[in-house]
Simulated assay, not measured.
Amino acid sequence: MTTHPTGGRPGPPFDAEAARRLREALGMTPAHVAYGIWAAYGIRVAPDTVTAWERGTASPSGAELTALAGALWCAPGELLGAPRTLREHRLARGMAADDLALRIGVDPAAYARMEAAGTWTGSDRQTAELAEALRLPCRALIELTGRDAKLAELLRGAATTRWQAYVRPVAKMVPLPKPRLQAALQGLHGDYQGLMAASLNWGGGGSSEESGHAGRAFLDGILEAFWARTGGG
Rank of each mutant, 00 (worst) to 15 (best):
M1L: 10
H4P: 02
G8D: 06
P12V: 14
P13K: 04
R23K: 08
L26I: 11
G27M: 10
M28S: 08
A31I: 06
Y35C: 07
G36W: 10
A39D: 15
A40N: 11
Y41I: 05
Y41K: 14
Y41D: 10
R44E: 15
R44Q: 15
T49N: 08
V50H: 07
A52P: 07
W53C: 09
G56Q: 08
S59V: 14
S61H: 01
T66A: 11
L68Y: 04
L68S: 05
G70V: 06
L72Q: 02
C74N: 02
A75R: 10
G77T: 12
E78P: 01
G81K: 00
A82E: 14
L86S: 06
L86P: 05
A92M: 00
G94Y: 00
M95Y: 01
A96Q: 08
A97R: 09
D98P: 10
D98K: 15
D99C: 00
A101Q: 03
G105T: 00
A109I: 05
A110N: 06
A112P: 00
M114H: 07
T119H: 11
L130N: 08
A131V: 04
I142W: 03
D148V: 15
A149G: 10
A149R: 15
K150I: 07
A152H: 07
L154K: 05
R156M: 05
A158P: 01
A159R: 03
A159F: 04
R162I: 00
R162V: 01
Q164D: 11
Y166I: 01
Y166K: 04
R168T: 15
R168D: 15
P169N: 05
K172W: 03
V174F: 10
V174D: 09
L176M: 14
P177V: 03
K178L: 09
L181M: 09
L185G: 12
L185W: 11
G187L: 08
L195T: 13
M196G: 13
L200H: 12
G203W: 10
G203N: 11
G204V: 13
G204W: 12
G205N: 13
S207A: 14
E209L: 10
E210Q: 15
G215N: 07
F218L: 09
F218P: 09
F218A: 08
F218H: 12
L219Q: 10
G221V: 05
I222D: 05
E224F: 04
A228H: 13
T230G: 09
